[in-house]
Design a protein around this nucleic acid. Sequence first.
RNA 1: GGUACCGUAGCCAAGUGGCCUAAGGCGACGGAUUGCAAAUCCGUUAUUUCCCCGGUUCGAAUCCGGGCGGUACCUCCA
Length: 521
Amino acid sequence: MSLRVYNTLTREKEAFQTIEPGKVSMYLCGPTVYKPAHIGHMVGPVIFDTVKRYLTYSGYDVTFIINITDVDDKLINKAAEKGTTVKALADEMTADYFDNLRLMGVDTIDKFPYATDHIGDMLEMIQKLIDNGHAYPLNGDVYFSVTTDDDYGKLSHRSVDQMLAGTRVEANDQKRNPADFALWKSSKAGEPAWESPWGPGRPGWHIECSAMSSKLLGDSIDIHGGGLDLMFPHHENELAQSECASGKCFVRYWMHNGLMQSGKNTGKVGGQHDKQGDTAAAADAAEAQIAGKLAGSAGAESVKTAVFAHCPPESVRFFLLSTHYRSPIDFSLENIANTAKGLDGFYRMFESFARITGGSAYDLAVPGSREQSTSLAGLPEGLAGELAGLRDRFLEAMDDDFNTGGAIGLLFELRRVINGYVTQNKLEEAATAEQKTALTTAMTLFRELAQVVGVFRKPIEKSSGADDEFVGGLMQLILELRADARKEKNWAAADKIRDQLKALNVTVEDVKDGPARWSRG
RNA sequence: GGUACCGUAGCCAAGUGGCCUAAGGCGACGGAUUGCAAAUCCGUUAUUUCCCCGGUUCGAAUCCGGGCGGUACCUCCA
């Protein structure tokens, strides 16, 4: 079985074949950095980070780029509103975006190009489009002429006529066709401006992605990703510009992820771009609600304060990946809490592993490629068979258009197999060297597959309270007193201590021999 | 109005022509274990069924048609 990818252009799953053997170029539309990142901004990066991980694991050499759009009308307006400069605002919001990506475990991006660093490339592309008759200047602006492109509309599968049918188009426009879109906009006084053959101005939306993609990855790339909301007009326009400029196929596989929605308050919470006026307003409203619900305060707020304060980033990542990337996903605290409960079982498995082997599951040397996958030789036959079967199913799921939901289901099954091995052989009580080796091998395979989807890579920060010397000492004392009571079969006292601690959100677990375990939260 | 997507158990969710007498998680119930718990393991939890109605097919959750319900997009400039 080999990799198949759903291509928005053809609306079909296609066998994955790269332009250059063994190499993959990926471009994902990043944010316009005019406000703090919201939870919807994290969807695309997490998904495509996972796509890159799997491609890398499968042996490809992947180059992955996410752009930062740091010049745009909204940015200009917002900066003016806040009494700051466009640059200062963009820098601040970019830093916030990066912070959130890091917390989500998104760290496979090779480069974040900034639109303002590539104005020259954009001017070049615009000039080329004018030269070959696909664009025309008009009063200091430059427009792309959609009627010169026979293919226009092939991505979103609609014709220019259809698009105009439902919209109120003001006819008193000098554009050749109402559907023509701006490549370059003349600037008004006080606005950020760059010199151009058509006078001072700034790039239109869309051109930055075309220019940077072709500059950094070449005229033809393998994968272009983004939220479903970007399919039209953004990607359609990018596609038109790029192919008209280069005369080559712009993108082999267009991949669009579903958008996040917020429970009852349905509607878009956010794709990767919130560049359109009306939808941005709707997104703001939805976002304000979420932020309000989560943080107890209204208004747009960064993910790290609005969301991560309530649910660990790993649970959010796991949640995003537990459904198919093309499906919409409902964001709610309840759903995340459900996911978090599932994760707890994995963390406990790691703790059990540490008790038995004396080592951390996180420190295992994990194979980074499918070819060098963990060897199951020497394992008990039944165990090896089960693990091998689950690995095959996991890879099959990922090969089928990155079915992370199915793959994560297999992670749960893997957990059950490992826990079963531990329980059946009573490894917590005593384990032979051979059994420890077998357990370590099984855990290595688990981590190998988990890192493919980017989870369980680092120990989570657990506020167990054990790191606090005072609390630790206190707990030790309390549990010793309880152990004494249990020795005397004074169950009333022992249960009272355990119940009262439970009321304080401290869970006590008795262990057959040795001190009881406790955890907080 | 146009263009798409979606509708699987109490909830989340995979599966998109036969291996489906439909993964997995959460929850619930029963058992092992425990002084009792917790954790873990085992079992049960959609049983002419995959929103409804028709059709294609030897065979459909999966394809086609029609309903019903939900969602998104139809830019910038003005």
